[in-house]
Design a protein around this nucleic acid. Structure first.
Length: 577
RNA sequence: GCUCCUGUAGUUCAACGGAUAGAAUGGGGGAUUGCGGAUCCUCUGAUGUGAGUUCGAUUCUCGCCGGGAGCACCA
């Protein structure tokens, strides 16, 4: 049990014992370190029912708290402050002993078993074959990977899956565009098959742009594309080679990006696999009145539930995204009988997802109940909107390459050609991009500016990596220093005490971040940790000082915590940069 | 028109209904012949607006003003 919940429990019991009431109150980690390591508002909440002033209530609680043996071990001092907050200060021995705990727990420091035996399936990234992997996908992947790691750190059994739209109008546009562009550029599918993956994917991207533009501007082309769409569903031999080849290119390309980002999916779902099941479900429940026919299409009457109507099967008899998604939920459950299914997508389909969940709740209520949709914001570019229709997109790959290029430029003489440097630059670049995406809350939009997001100063991924490198540098130089158990009666410098008091909170922050699905809380914590360490580092010498043993252990603990935290964010560490 | 999201320093972001609204960046001024200066310190500067609920509101409710997304055969 964490210190926080111990305090909560003790206060709860005390309130019942002294006043005979149980109220809802909180135990917080104060922002201001002068307000203690933990604080509670219980006295403010109790004041009214007890008919005493908050400070009086606090005083009564304080007196009795000190009698509690289990608390006197942990807590050194209890203060009453402000309007009636009770502040707790942890004992020094507790703080120092935490370093020993970190050393023992090593890479499991920060984990817990709150979600033990829970099966959680996470779905994220979801790029569509035949289309670009753009920054939005990069963002979804970064968020999804971090959330997956967070819930896994709390003991959950996690499976990552990716759902890809390999059938539908967008594919028809790309296929049509491929046919067209192969002719206009006087090449052939056989010729293209010999080219590099890069060139193939580029050709695909252009084909999609060609098809998408024609669909909007050319009536004849539009009709043809709709025909192609039917051919795709029918697996028409005329297009099957083109289709399979293009899809394979896309998937190979996505695979390269996942490898760079450190995501390993346990399973890939395709619309082509779940579409039929979804359609059958819809038709089955059409008879039962869940769905309705309207203008030749089958719709779900969301308006009857305060939402909006959506088409599930279009008038051509083809399942739309909605019906396919309806088929996906049971398929996921069959693959992995989950306790919770987390779907991470952009905010723009939030309303749509509500409709979908409503429909699912009438068909498979137990699955709908277990499904959680988390919407993330858009990545806005100051330079203007990107559009895959015009082929004017910033791709995820381009962004990663650009970040890496800038790292090399800043860190090294760019002429150097060295595998080690290349590997480090890649990791630092990934850190810059991922951290920029994760440091703010996932609900809001992200204003992505290269100058500010690919930065190596201030609140950035590379800053954290740099701080980690410093800790490791100390450890290398102090190899012979023993870091065994530390005495309690050490005289602490102010900067040391601040660090120790911050380190205690890591497991609580991680647990909370996992609970509320907020990787940005981990970012915030790590950034503060790095700042506090750098301040300590600037003011005190580690190696050669009288407290070398203690300080080396402190550096080691900070390094371990930084590494564990960065790992939860899906960000790699480096040992030299 | 309807639904949802959103409005905090010049800019980009924080703050379970709590204490003096916290950072980064920008701008001004400084620091360590020391373990990596991609560091550290310091100054500067903000809750769109009007009510309400509360011991206490950036946070909750309502109005107004501004920004964004979605709303039938795309995904």
């Amino acid at each position: 049990m964490s210190i926080k919940s111990q305090l909560h429990e003790s206060l709860h019991q005390l309130s019942e014992k002294l006043f005979g009431i149980s109220v809802s109150f909180s135990v917080d980690i104060p922002e201001n370190i002068d307000h203690g390591d933990y604080s509670t508002n219980i006295a403010l909440v109790l004041a009214k029912p007890v008919k005493k002033s908050p400070r009086e209530v606090a005083a009564i609680l304080k007196e009795n708290l000190l009698l509690d043996d289990s608390l006197s071990h942990i807590v050194d001092k209890v203060d009453i402050a402000g309007p009636g907050f009770i502040n707790f200060f942890l004992s020094k021995s507790m703080l120092i002993n935490n370093l020993n705990i970190i050393e023992e727990k090593s890479d499991t420091f920060g984990t817990s078993d709150i979600l033990k035996d829970k099966k959680i399936i996470t779905e994220f990234t979801d790029p569509n074959p035949f289309k670009e992997f753009h920054i939005g996908h990069l963002y979804s992947n970064t968020v999804g990977e971090s959330l997956s790691r967070l819930v896994a750190s709390q003991g959950a059994d996690v499976k990552r899956v990716c759902y890809q739209g390999d059938v539908g109008l967008h594919v028809a546009k790309a296929i049509w565009g491929l046919q067209k562009n192969i002719v206009t550029s006087a090449t052939s599918l056989e010729e293209l098959k010999k080219k590099s993956l890069h060139e193939q994917v580029h050709f695909l991207g252009q084909a999609y742009a060609t098809g998408a533009t024609a669909y909007e501007e050319d009536e004849e082309a539009k009709k043809q594309i709709i025909e192609v769409n039917k051919q795709i569903f029918a697996k028409d031999p005329e297009i099957v080679d083109l289709y399979e080849t293009g899809k394979a290119w896309s998937l190979a390309y996505f695979g390269e990006i996942y490898a760079r980002l450190g995501t390993v999916f346990d399973h890939f779902f395709f619309e082509s696999e779940v579409g039929e099941d979804g359609k059958k479900l819809v038709l089955g429940y059409l008879e039962k009145g869940v769905f309705k026919e309207s203008d030749g299409a089958v719709i779900f009457p969301g308006e009857e539930y305060g939402l909006h109507n959506r088409v599930f099967i279009n008038s051509l008899g083809l399942p739309t995204y909605e019906a396919k998604e309806l088929g996906l939920a049971p398929a996921k459950y069959e693959y992995f009988p989950y306790d919770q299914s987390i779907v991470i997508t952009g905010n723009e389909i939030k309303e749509y997802f509500k409709v979908l969940l409503k429909a699912l709740s009438l068909i498979r209520p137990e699955l709908a109940e277990k499904t959680l949709h988390i919407g993330h914001g858009m990545v806005r570019l100051p330079e203007g909107k990107m559009s895959s229709r015009t082929g004017n997109v910033i791709t995820g790959e381009w962004l990663l390459d650009e970040a890496k290029r800038r790292v090399v430029k800043i860190m090294y003489d760019s002429s150097v050609d060295d595998d080690k440097i290349d590997e480090t630059a890649e990791k630092v670049g990934i850190a810059a991009v991922k951290y920029a995406l994760l440091k703010s809350g996932i609900g809001g939009d992200i204003a992505f500016s290269f100058s500010e997001s690919i930065t190596f100063e201030g609140n950035s991924g590379p800053y954290l990596q740099y701080t980690f490198v410093r800790t490791q540098s100390i450890l290398t130089k102090a190899q012979d220093t023993k870091t065994g158990r530390q005495d309690d009666d050490l005289a602490l410098e102010k900067e040391e005490e601040i660090l120790l008091r911050h380190l205690v909170h890591f497991p609580e922050i991680v647990a909370y971040a996992a609970q509320v699905y907020a990787p940005n809380l981990v970012c915030e914590y790590l950034y503060q940790l790095a700042q506090k360490f750098n301040l300590f580092y600037a003011k005190h010498t580690v190696i050669g000082s009288e407290q070398e043993q203690f300080r080396v252990l402190l550096a080691k603990s900070v390094g371990q915590t930084l590494e564990n935290g960065l790992t939860l964010l899906g960000i790699p560490v480096v040992y030299k940069m």
